[in-house]
């Protein structure tokens, strides 16, 4: 269904591309500076493209009445929301992972790091989707995407900090703890997100 509505997928993808290019351009070609900010650039572009697509998932369905049917059906709301978030992650993060090699060339990151970088983003990015869906479920009553964006950003601090830390220090040896923490962070958000979003949706209807 997300594929059929389609358009936001392309927007997120294009936005990520434009934002990375913007980061590269903002250094005015200074390579040392580009080396320093490239990992942060990738993470922040990822964050913005996730944020942009968030209100499409929950709010659109809330407005066209699909959420009412989810509540009426016997199927647990938690599981529906869990799969919705997975779909959101697949449609937003996977295309971005696919063009990562080209972005890396543009941002002057060595291609040997490709596998490590892909792994880190693959581990870290589900947390972005899950936290985002959780917060957008909270703000069902208010439709402004500006509000959602504003109040979601503080919740991205843990993921973003760990992600950028991991991406920045790929050559260090003792990084295993940071990777473990990053995956723990993701697992934690995956665990709490469906329950809290379902709780928030039910509260909104009660």
């Amino acid at each position: 269904m997300v594929l059929r509505s389609g358009s936001h997928l392309l927007i997120a993808f294009t936005f990520f591309f434009f934002f990375s290019v913007l980061f590269a351009l903002s250094t005015l070609g200074t390579e040392t500076l580009l080396h320093l900010i490239a990992p942060s650039g990738i993470w922040i572009s990822l964050l913005i493209s996730v944020l942009l697509t968030l209100n499409k998932i929950i709010h659109q369905e809330f407005e066209n009445g699909s959420t009412d049917f989810y509540l009426l059906s016997d199927f647990p709301l938690e599981i529906i929301l869990f799969f919705k978030t997975i779909v959101h992650w697949i449609t937003v993060a996977i295309p971005i992972l696919l063009i990562m090699p080209f972005i890396m060339i543009a941002l002057q990151i060595e291609l040997e790091k490709l596998f490590v970088l892909l792994t880190i983003i693959f581990i870290g990015s589900p947390a972005l989707s899950f936290v985002g869906i959780m917060i957008s479920c909270l703000t069902l009553s208010n439709n402004s995407s500006f509000l959602i964006t504003t109040i979601t950003i503080p919740f991205y601090f843990p993921t973003l900090l760990l992600g950028i830390y991991c991406t920045n220090n790929t050559d260090l040896d003792n990084m295993s703890l940071a990777y473990v923490l990053l995956s723990l962070n993701t697992l934690f958000t995956i665990t709490i997100s469906p329950f809290i979003s379902a709780y928030a949706v039910k509260l909104h209807y009660s």
Binding site: I135, L138, P154, F155, F157, P158, N185, L203, H204
Partner: peptide, 18 residues
């Protein structure tokens, strides 16, 4: 009411985490 209280509780968890 519900939104802000959930925000506050989640916020305390995520602030500690960060």
């Amino acid at each position: 009411s519900n939104v802000t209280s959930l925000f506050c509780i989640l916020g305390s968890i995520f602030a500690l985490l960060s």
